[in-house]
Amino acid sequence: MTMLIDAASWACLVAGSFFCVVGGIGLLRMPDFYTRIHAASVTETLGAGLLLLGLLLQAGPTLIAAKLVALGLLVFFASPTAAHALASAAMTRGLAPLLAPREDTPSKP
C-alpha cells in the first residue's frame, strides 16, 4: 500500500514538473501577450495542482496536509483573479490582441 501511494505521488510530481516546464516554454513561444496568459495558466492549474497533490500524498493525514490544501485553495481562487486583472488592465490601456484571420486555416505567428 505504501509503495502504491509512493508511486502515485511520484507520478504526480513528475507530471506537475512537466506541466510547469511546458508553461515556461509556452510563455516564450506564444506570439502575443494574451496568448501567453493561456500558457501561464497551464502552470498555475495543472502544474501547481499536480505538484501539490503529489506532496499531499507524501504527507499523509497531518497538519502539513491541511497546509498544502490551503496552498492549493489559494492558487485555485487567486490565480484566475490575477489573470483577469492582467488581461483587463492590458485591454484598458489599449494593448491590441493579435487575432487569427477569419478563414479556417491555423494561424502562424
Binding site: 512537466f18 516546464v21 515556461g24 501567453r36 501561464a40 494593448l95
Partner: peptide, 28 residues
C-alpha cells in the same frame, strides 16, 4: 526532479521578463 523543473521554469520566465516587450508581459 521537481526542483530542477521549477528552476528551469523560473529561468524561462526570467527570459520572457527580460524580452518584454510590454510591461504586462513582464508582470505576467
Amino acid at each position: 526532479v521537481a526542483t530542477v523543473a521549477l528552476i528551469v521554469a523560473v529561468g524561462l520566465a526570467l527570459v520572457r521578463s527580460a524580452l518584454g516587450p510590454s510591461v504586462f508581459d513582464r508582470l505576467l
